[in-house]
Computed example of a mutant assay.
Amino acid sequence: MAGHGSKTVILAALGGNALIAGTKFVAAAFTGSAAMMSEGIHSLVDTGNQILLLYGMRQAARPATAEHPFGYGLRLYFWAFVVAILIFGLGAGLSILHGIEKIRDPHPIQDAWVNYIVLALGIVFEGAVWMVAFKAFRAEKGDGGWIAAIRASKDPTIFTVLFEDSAALLGLVTALIGIALAQTLEMPILDGVASVIIGIILALTAAFLAYECQSLLTGEGVSAPVRASIRSIAAAGNGVERINESLTMHFGPNDVLVALSLDFSNTLPAAGVEDTVSAIERAIKAAHPDVTRVFVEAQSFEAHRRSLVEAAQG
């Protein structure tokens, strides 16, 4: 499941979004700003999303049962995917619809200074939450590039919050510019345009998050360096002549299944095979603490090849 750092990031985001969501709605009702209403919707959706992520983490922590022998870790990925759908359906959809309504029926913003105060506070709060998520993700990513780290990350909670808050900051700046232009140029239609742009930002964010989460949900393996390390450890086992197959799958950010098909020397006794299998399992888990299960199949290369051919034909 996700670690303590992930929970801290989510709680920080939950507190920040809950704090500002109500303020945005009050400001929107007071001033009649479509962009501010979109921002209120955005913060409300984000607050709900953090609750769902916390629920997903709790579900993922449940112990394995006979019905779910590999545990419930994949539920975290499911709820992260639901979060992406909610950002798209509620956040982006309602923001765009509200903006179109304002474009069709533009009306001046009343007491715009209220919006400026709320947006400034929003930038402060969202910025603080963004820094928490940014620091957590930077610690996780190591020395790799940002995009590569996001693609390689198996913990959707951190990068989901990071992208949510990035979208929130962009939305706040967009709302600020839209309201300022609408007031300065006396073109209230620009307030509606800002709302539509906020919706588009949310839609793009949701699309990226959905793509990453569905990949995790449908079964991602470990990174190439970890795969190479596992194969190297297996190949070094006493009596191992060939690695027929090496499969891995993440059942959670820190829950990896490894399945190996190994061709052992015909001269190695059964007890020797058992000792080698135990040694390989210990070595893999010691080198990679996220590996929680290692299954080793002893099979000749020819038998393994025949099984693959039969599986492809049948």
Rank of each mutant, 00 (worst) to 15 (best):
M1Y: 11
A2D: 10
N17G: 10
F25C: 08
A27D: 02
T31V: 09
E39V: 01
I41N: 01
I41V: 08
I51S: 09
L52I: 14
L53N: 07
A60V: 03
A60T: 06
R62N: 07
A64N: 15
H68A: 05
A80D: 11
A80E: 09
V83M: 09
F88D: 05
G91L: 03
G93A: 06
K102V: 01
R104I: 04
L119R: 03
L121T: 06
F125I: 14
A128W: 09
V129G: 09
V132Q: 08
R138K: 13
D143Y: 07
D143R: 15
R151V: 12
A152L: 05
P156L: 10
S166T: 04
A167F: 00
M187Y: 13
L190V: 11
V196W: 05
I200A: 13
L202P: 01
Y211A: 13
Y211L: 13
Q214H: 15
Q214M: 15
S215N: 12
L217M: 11
T218E: 00
S229E: 11
I230T: 08
I230C: 06
A236T: 05
G239F: 00
R242D: 00
R242V: 02
V256W: 02
S265V: 06
A271G: 11
A271W: 08
R282G: 01
A283M: 12
I284Y: 03
A286D: 15
A287C: 11
H288V: 14
A298C: 07
A298K: 04
A298W: 01
Q299F: 03
Q299N: 13
A303D: 09
R306K: 04
V309Y: 13
